[in-house]
Computed example of a mutant assay.
Amino acid sequence: MIIWRGWGILVLLISAVLGGPGTFAAEVLLGPDLMNFGTAGGLALAGIAVFFIGQRLNRPRPGYHPATGQPVMFGNSHTFFFVPMQYWGFILLGISLVTTVVTLVGQL
C-alpha cells in the first residue's frame, strides 16, 4: 500500500521516470554488470528534483483566518509515507550513494 498526501506521489513518479531510463542507458553503455551506476545517477537526479519541487509545494502561504480575519500562514502538506516531500530528496540521494557503494564493492 502506497500512502501519500497532496502531490506526494510525485516522489515515486519522478524516481521512476529518472531512475528507470538511467538503468537502461547504463546497461547499454556500460554492460549489465555496471547498470546500477545508471540507477544511482537517475536516483541522484530524482533526489535533486524532488527536493526542489517539495520545497516549492510545501512552502507556507500567507492568508487570513476565516473566523477572526487575522493574518496566518497556511502550510501545505505534500507527503509520501508521512515524510514531507522535500526530505525525500535526501533519502533518494542516500539510496543513490548506497547503490553506488554496493556496486563498487561488488566489482572487487
Rank of each mutant, 00 (worst) to 15 (best):
M1L: 09
M1E: 11
W4H: 13
R5V: 06
G6D: 04
G8C: 07
G8D: 01
G8Q: 00
L10V: 06
L10M: 09
L12A: 12
I14M: 01
S15N: 11
S15E: 10
A16Y: 03
A16T: 06
L18K: 08
G19C: 08
G20S: 11
P21E: 03
G22K: 08
E27P: 01
E27R: 15
V28C: 00
L30C: 12
L30E: 12
P32F: 13
N36H: 11
N36S: 12
N36Q: 12
N36G: 09
F37C: 09
T39A: 13
A40H: 04
A40E: 10
A44R: 08
L45R: 05
A49H: 08
A49S: 09
F52N: 05
F52D: 04
F52C: 06
I53W: 00
I53A: 06
G54N: 02
G54F: 05
R56E: 03
R56M: 05
L57K: 09
L57G: 02
L57V: 07
H65N: 14
H65G: 00
A67P: 01
T68G: 05
G69R: 06
G69D: 14
Q70E: 15
Q70H: 06
P71L: 08
P71V: 05
P71S: 07
V72S: 04
M73L: 15
F74Q: 10
N76A: 11
H78C: 06
T79Y: 11
T79M: 07
F82R: 07
V83L: 13
P84A: 07
M85Y: 01
W88V: 04
G89P: 04
G89R: 03
F90W: 14
L92D: 04
L92P: 09
L93V: 02
G94D: 11
V98M: 15
T99Y: 06
T100I: 14
T100K: 03
T100H: 14
T103M: 11
L108G: 14
